[in-house]
């Protein structure tokens, strides 16, 4: 098993005719993902990489039986794109787009939930189940199907750890990037719950960073509900307070959201916390030995 995406995933690409959308649709198809439709308003009737393009998500969903949608549209139009996918009944929506105003996301998140859809992101690299489906912008070849589930707020930092897990021979069941924004659709806890329930996943890696309290909430959840070994890395021990470190959500404000607080909470929950990214794989190897 795996979580969220697999060889049965029928993917719709919103913004497929844009530069990013076209490029990544090609990369995903090459990886073996079933890309069944694309949407760009006003470009219906065309095709990209042999994938039919529609004007609206509802039409695309009806014609292609898509069960997931990935969004590559610019920030100005991305909230509407997420809402369109949710209203069309798409159960899994992945929003790659960054720089969406946070007040927009508060509303979008609530609406998506009311439609019982799951939103991953925004401002995320997407997710992958190695050997089955790549739904995102991550380099596919660094992944290897294996034993560890990975959840992260970051992009390249995730690749770093994925690579280390691959090199250590542990591999991944699925790797999910939940995104670096202060308000996102899916939390660490949501993904931990899925990995805990997934038979194939033997251990879980959590990659967090400064800002907010998602890691602390995850720690409390792990202590109560997760029986599998968890190892973690938290980026930003050296980040100064009050400064946004690239990601909109990576900011220590009012003394809250420090790396120390997160590390302390995770360690108290029995999580092995590494002092640098690649060491997460070593810790996981020990935990699974």
């Amino acid at each position: 098993m795996s979580i969220l995406v697999d060889s049965d995933t029928r993917l719709l690409v919103q913004g497929i005719t844009g530069r990013e959308g076209t490029f990544h649709a090609g990369q995903m198809i090459e990886y073996g993902t079933q890309v069944v439709a694309g949407v760009t308003p006003g470009r219906g009737g065309g095709s990209v990489h042999g994938v039919p393009v529609f004007d609206t998500v509802s039409e695309a969903a009806r014609e292609s039986s898509a069960n997931a949608s990935i969004i590559y549209v610019p920030a100005r139009f991305a909230p509407d794109a997420v809402l369109e996918a949710a209203d069309a009944g798409i159960p899994l929506i992945i929003c790659i787009t960054e720089n969406i105003p946070v007040n927009e996301m508060i509303k979008v998140r609530a609406h998506v939930k009311s439609k019982c859809a799951r939103l991953i992101g925004p401002n995320c690299p997407g997710l992958i189940t190695p050997g089955e489906a790549k739904v995102g912008i991550m380099p596919g070849y660094i992944h290897k199907r294996g034993r560890v589930g990975l959840v992260s707020r970051s992009g390249t930092l995730t690749y770093e750890v994925v690579w280390a897990l691959t090199e250590a021979g542990l591999g991944q069941t699925s790797a999910v990037g939940i995104g670096g924004d202060p308000i996102n659709g899916t939390s660490f806890i949501d993904v931990l719950e899925l990995f805990e329930a997934d038979d194939e996943t033997e251990g879980i890696v959590l990659l967090g960073e400064i800002g907010g309290s998602d890691e602390e909430e995850a720690a409390a959840y792990i202590a109560e509900h997760v029986s599998k070994p968890v190892s973690a890395f938290i980026a930003g021990r050296t980040a100064p307070p009050g400064k946004r470190m690239g990601h909109a959500g990576a900011i220590i404000s009012g003394g809250a959201g420090t790396a120390e607080s997160k590390i302390e909470a995770l360690e108290a929950a029995g999580v092995a916390v590494a002092d640098r990214p690649a060491a997460v794989a070593d810790l996981m190897a020990k935990q699974l030995a």
Binding site: G155, T156, T158, R237, A250, R276
Partner: peptide, 24 residues
Amino acid sequence: VNGAGLAMATMDAIKLFGGEPANF
């Protein structure tokens, strides 16, 4: 560095090995 998370992790690694980062 490319990527915000990796950039933070890089700063942290410098500190871990006894140095001080000049920037993110």
